[in-house]
Amino acid sequence: MDLLPLFEWCEASWLGQLVRVSTWLFPVLESVHLLGLSLLGGVLLVVDLRLLNVMLRDQPVATLGRGLHPWLNRAVALMLSTGFLLFMSEAVKCYHSPAFRLKMATLPVALAFTYLVRQPVVLRDAPPHVWRARAVAAGSILLWLTVAASGRWIGFSS
């Protein structure tokens, strides 16, 4: 099944055109997306580096995990909403972009890994086993790094 008609419909939609015809909207959304990246990357990395035992060793994983959990949710919500609008405005370009395809293949895995694997480990009272902690942190960093790097590359592949 070819998805191109769906992508064309997205770009032609009211929402896609709203962002597309505006001079300022796309750059503003892009800027907020970038602020979201900083926040999301920060709250992920602080806990991941703690899981790797290289940062904030004197703080329990659960304390950091719980203290940053609301901000993780906020950052994800900000990224998904701004990312969705950016996509709608240039869906056809995204369709033809290998970087976008890589990002869309990795993003659901990263989200599922974060909420189904990482957060249960991070929010638990008992400290995680050292190798489980390392595996979770490495998975989180690799997945989100791929999402971020391929996302940045969409802009270069035009």
Binding site: L34, L37, S38, L40, G42, V43, L44, L45, A148
Partner: peptide, 18 residues
């Protein structure tokens, strides 16, 4: 270089924001 500049934001601005 540009990608490294942008991705390092996560560690720099992210930890500063925390």
């Amino acid at each position: 270089t540009e990608s490294a500049h942008v991705l390092t934001l996560a560690l720099f601005a992210g930890t500063a924001a925390v």
